[in-house]
């Protein structure tokens, strides 16, 4: 079944949580199962919604999940069920 926007966001956040809270862009690209262009678009959205933050490192950068991102992940199933139940 085709993933909705909220499914993709949750998959990306879960990928970061499963990597200990921080992940490199290439790992996220692999785990999120998206094209590079689409992943960049989602990362921009996740950063703008303060669900993740960019972290500069010695070699390149990584993405770290925020408290709001963790809360999103916890509430994901309820949000999805709310969405499905009320036809949103």
């Amino acid at each position: 079944m085709r993933r909705t926007r909220i499914d993709i966001i949750n998959d990306m956040l879960l990928a970061i949580v499963n990597k200990g809270g921080s992940i490199k862009p290439t790992h996220l690209l692999y785990k999120s199962n998206l094209s590079h262009t689409l992943m960049k678009e989602y990362i921009r959205e996740l950063i703008s919604k303060k669900l993740i933050m960019e972290q500069p490192e010695k070699r390149g950068k990584s993405f770290r999940i925020t408290d709001k991102g963790r809360q999103f992940s916890r509430e994901y199933k309820k949000m999805k069920e709310f969405q499905e139940s009320f036809g949103l």
Binding site: R5, I6, I9, S48, K49, K68, Q71, F72, E75, K78, M79, F82, Q83, F86, L88
Partner: peptide
Amino acid sequence: LTSLKFYRLSNMKKYYYF
């Protein structure tokens, strides 16, 4: 209140309007 809480988390307008 629940819908607005989900909007605050996800920034998705549909939760806001609902």
